[in-house]
Simulated assay, not measured.
Amino acid sequence: MTIVASGSAMSSAAPAGQGVGPLLRAWRQRRRVSQLELALRADSSARHISFIETGRSRPSEEMVLRLAEHLEVPVRERNALLLAAGYAPHYPETSLDDPALGALREGLERLIRGYEPYPALVVDAMYDVVTANRGITMLLDGVPESLLVPPLNAMRLTLHPEGLAPRIRNLREWRGHLLAQMERQIALHRSARLRALYEEVAAYPVPQGAVEDEPAKDVPYFALPMRVEHEGRVLSFVSSISTFNTPMDVTVAELAIETFLPADPSTVKYLHSMLG
């Protein structure tokens, strides 16, 4: 699979007409930070933070960005804070088709190809697949074409009763892990689109006849594995997710690279025999 264009993944967190003060207060409370603690971090005073939150004082653009940094506000939401304060967005949102991101696209393609024969993919904030390698393509063998129409969505592909779900041998565990991951993202981004996706996939029924088996007793799993059947064999993977450090673009900030590491020797051997 190759990189495809990805649209805006998240809606702005700033309600129409709401000033920056209540938004900053909501982020501070979400992070469970007191006004005094935030003031110390941002080299300000608790009085000034209080005035900002109540609308008695308008923060400078620099102060908005400083507070957002110390509150670990996602990049897209930092733009929303700036808009609410009356400033222009600070972080661009560049399409993946833009020549400016050519080096990024090439690097991502090279990275996941280099991970073969093990599965790897890149998703955006809505879990739409931006690019994937042959390991992922192999796992999707037999999935109906209706689920493979771009943009592919990793959550739908995994949890849909006609997708990978019937083949996942620890579906209840893996499904719970994925839904909890989405819940954390919703709490962080407050995206209506992501909430709608969550409600859709959470409502998928568990496929009838889904097999739930126990992991091999002789394999010391160090993380929850996904055990998925492929051509009569059960393959085991543990998942790792990577993001970019200090992103300066909304699109880049919302990309995640997920790699699936074989969790047992038989999976390693099988993947090398198929794709090596």
Rank of each mutant, 00 (worst) to 15 (best):
R227H: 07
I241L: 02
E145I: 05
A125Q: 11
L148Q: 13
P59G: 04
V122E: 01
A85Q: 02
A256K: 15
Q35P: 10
P225W: 02
R233H: 13
S12L: 00
M126F: 08
M226N: 06
I241Y: 01
S239V: 13
F244N: 11
A263T: 01
S6E: 15
V252C: 03
A26R: 15
P15T: 00
P119T: 06
V238T: 12
A165N: 01
T137R: 08
A187P: 14
R28E: 09
E258L: 04
L164K: 09
Y115L: 06
L148R: 14
I136G: 01
G209W: 00
H70M: 14
I186K: 06
R227F: 10
Q181S: 14
D43Y: 11
A85N: 07
P166A: 00
Y91Q: 07
A100V: 14
M274N: 02
L171V: 03
R56K: 15
L152N: 04
L108M: 13
E62R: 08
M10R: 10
V4M: 04
R31L: 10
H160E: 07
A165F: 06
H90V: 00
V219P: 10
M1P: 04
A26S: 14
D97L: 08
V123R: 10
P247D: 02
L104H: 11
T259H: 00
F51S: 12
A84T: 08
A210N: 09
V75W: 11
V143H: 00
R233L: 15
P144M: 03
R76W: 12
S57G: 03
R32T: 12
N245T: 15
R113V: 12
Q29V: 07
H160S: 02
S12A: 12
E183Y: 00
G102K: 01
D264K: 01
L24Y: 08
L82P: 05
H90L: 00
L152H: 00
E199L: 12
R76P: 11
F260C: 08
I168R: 02
N79K: 05
F260V: 04
V149E: 07
G55S: 03
P22G: 09
I49Q: 02
Y127G: 06
E93W: 04
R105Q: 09
R195E: 14
V234G: 01
V20P: 09
M274F: 03
R30W: 11
R31D: 10
R110W: 15
L140G: 05
E145R: 08
L36D: 13
G86C: 00
G142N: 03
L164M: 14
S45P: 05
L23C: 10
G276S: 07
A84E: 08
A9D: 14
A5K: 13
S45R: 07
P99E: 07
R195L: 14
L71W: 12
E72Q: 07
A216I: 11
N245E: 15
K269Q: 13
L261E: 15
E109R: 12
G107A: 04
D98H: 12
L71I: 06
E162H: 08
V20R: 07
I136F: 01
E106I: 09
R193I: 10
L148W: 08
P74T: 09
F51T: 09
L179A: 07
A192E: 15
M155L: 14
L65K: 01
T259Q: 01
T94M: 00
V149H: 05
S236R: 02
Q35G: 13
S57R: 12
G17W: 10
E229T: 08
A80R: 07
R58P: 10
L275Y: 04
P262Q: 00
V20C: 14
Y198C: 05
I186V: 10
L139Q: 00
